[in-house]
Write a protein that binds this DNA or RNA. Sequence first.
DNA 1: AATTAAGCGAGACGGTACGTCCGGTCTTGGT
DNA 2: ACCAAGACCGGACGTACCGTCTCGCTTAATT
Lengths: 215, 215, 215, 215
Amino acid sequence: MAPQQPARQPAPDATRRSERSRRAIYDAALALVAEIGYPRTTIEGIASRAGVGKQTIYRWWPSKADVLLEAFLDLSDQAAQAAQADGTADDAAYALPDTGDLAADLKYVLRATVDELHDPAFEAPSRALAAEGVVNEELGRRFVARLLEPQLQLYVDRLRAAQEAGDVRADIDPRIALELFVSPLAQRWLQYTAPITYEYTDTLVDYALNGLAPR
Amino acid sequence: MAPQQPARQPAPDATRRSERSRRAIYDAALALVAEIGYPRTTIEGIASRAGVGKQTIYRWWPSKADVLLEAFLDLSDQAAQAAQADGTADDAAYALPDTGDLAADLKYVLRATVDELHDPAFEAPSRALAAEGVVNEELGRRFVARLLEPQLQLYVDRLRAAQEAGDVRADIDPRIALELFVSPLAQRWLQYTAPITYEYTDTLVDYALNGLAPR
Amino acid sequence: MAPQQPARQPAPDATRRSERSRRAIYDAALALVAEIGYPRTTIEGIASRAGVGKQTIYRWWPSKADVLLEAFLDLSDQAAQAAQADGTADDAAYALPDTGDLAADLKYVLRATVDELHDPAFEAPSRALAAEGVVNEELGRRFVARLLEPQLQLYVDRLRAAQEAGDVRADIDPRIALELFVSPLAQRWLQYTAPITYEYTDTLVDYALNGLAPR
Amino acid sequence: MAPQQPARQPAPDATRRSERSRRAIYDAALALVAEIGYPRTTIEGIASRAGVGKQTIYRWWPSKADVLLEAFLDLSDQAAQAAQADGTADDAAYALPDTGDLAADLKYVLRATVDELHDPAFEAPSRALAAEGVVNEELGRRFVARLLEPQLQLYVDRLRAAQEAGDVRADIDPRIALELFVSPLAQRWLQYTAPITYEYTDTLVDYALNGLAPR
DNA sequence: AATTAAGCGAGACGGTACGTCCGGTCTTGGT
DNA sequence: ACCAAGACCGGACGTACCGTCTCGCTTAATT
């Protein structure tokens, strides 16, 4: 119906695209970012490590950051599928747990997030993408839309359920409410303002639910 | 007694340093980051714009990010001094307002922060430094220690005062508590997750003080 | 069978070399040396004037002197071909004249050499190469083997013919004999020890053929 | 009457000049040229090795080549004085030997020159100066006038004596005649065209005195 | 003896060029 | 047509020196 992307260049034919090269590029990009860091990772380096011509990268991605973003999305999808395969039906990738105890559920999920933020395989590329997004608004928005927002949506869902159960006030906006415990964790991780522990995230949930003022 | 700094290189003689060049470099760095963005700002460009030899930059700073960090610190100091000069004695640079109404005071300060985050002169360099800090831990910690933490400390002080006044529960850790409203704002700004408005920051303060759970 | 060249670097693919760039580099190098002198001629200057990236020079030549040597060889080849095209069959590029009068032939050729040494197009680059060769033995030997020795060989041939004709003693080594008139000219030109004139070269030939001692 | 040099700069006061520094600069310059070669010898390197400020060099010499020229002249003077001290009255520095046998005397002196040209202490700086002189006419003329021409004058004197003794034809110009055996040696040394041996210089003398043509 | 003024060691400074690396484009030959 | 390979133009990197300049410090020569 609607036209595809405007396609300023001769528009490569995606049906002929080499899946082999695409995978090799993702692997090389993630490996290099993990090994030598994002700033020292170069397109030439990725091409060389992937055994691929530079043009093959430039044909399909406009920048180093875009390569990494797609590589990371691909990695996340794979991880999600793997988790779903050997996990329960209500996988964390699709919904937060709902045991009826909101505080406990949030603490559980945030503890899992703490673990993930300490996983070296995720840390290097996601830091790199976050950093790039800070300075490059267009990519930042894409990063948020594709990776961050879907995860935050799970909190929105859980908080809505809590509102129906009467555990959260009805006049609360869940999209804002979730930031009370998610953003502090994000900031500590992004900016090294302070260490990240289970105790810390538990505290965040308590403070957020009960408020700072005396009751 | 105490050892001098390690000084790995021949250690330039700081007493002979050209104040004129230092200022010109700060100005050029800030101007370029504002005009063409951090990634396209180069050491050569700064040197050229400042009318300075490249070596004069490399002699005193190890990297582009360090130049910008010092330039920004200098800018902040100047702004603080200017504010103090024409302001009241209890300047915001030294303490948050304390009218007795904690919610109002916090809302006031956060609104000022919203304004500052929209000020183009501050936005470009601080974004750049934040981004660099995400990916470069050493610089990130310096950025936090020199710029961010001193500002957060003002919230700690205000919250302590509120605890004494009985407006905040005594068992609350102020350093964590402040993150409930500061970090969400930071994240929205850094990652473009959502717009930043007065209404938003007001809401954050209300949620944080009163909690999400029904009272 | 025979080993390939050692090829210490990744060895660029000569078949893909840009002829256009090569020529532009030669032209730029010769022009700059003529205009501003060898020491002030820089690789960057050559690249810029030739409209070429610096790497294109570094890819194919190890040093400024090598660029100039090849540029000059190319120039000489072109001049030789041009001379042959519109000249007689027995071009000076292939043999010295042999009218039967050795003294006259030598004087003729040396006068032509005097003219050439005063030709600004040849002077600047050949001086530069000679100077570099004095201080850089490896390049000096290449300069001699590729440019100087082939010309001297023509004298050897002419002197051999003279020996057969009985105009030069049979026990004379022509390779040494030619130096009696060629080297003095060379030294005056290289070291500015004294001016170079037709009269001077005529005198050299007379002295060399007849000797200094009374007959 | 007439003013001394125009003195474009404030004209340093030579009476206050530090003899200690001058010597240290000469030594450093000669040592560096011998050790790392002329092109890699820098003014900064000389200053540092001599334990001297850069300005002390720039105050007294206009260029690296001039420093080396004076250093070499100084070295030559010292060598000449040393030779005179432990040698005969008629030192080679003041006159060529005159045993009555011109050929033998010339062969003797040229053999001594061959030895000198192989002396590493003299080779590096004199090559460097010669090379610089090829490309820098002004310095070249100074090099010739101060170093080369005085030595050639000794040949002129010896050849004049030979003319009076009837061993050289009266119509010969000694200044040109000497080039028949001196220049070939010079060229072989400067340009690496061929090896330098006693046999070679002996041959040059024979050829020059007797001529190439049959007698 | 105190004062002055130059040379001096040191090295920061504004520059230029070095030789390298990489970005992004283009061309070639192979599949 | 895509791909691996890599040459190409361009531009920034971080380093090395250039030649000038300023800073304190000797060190005479002059008051």
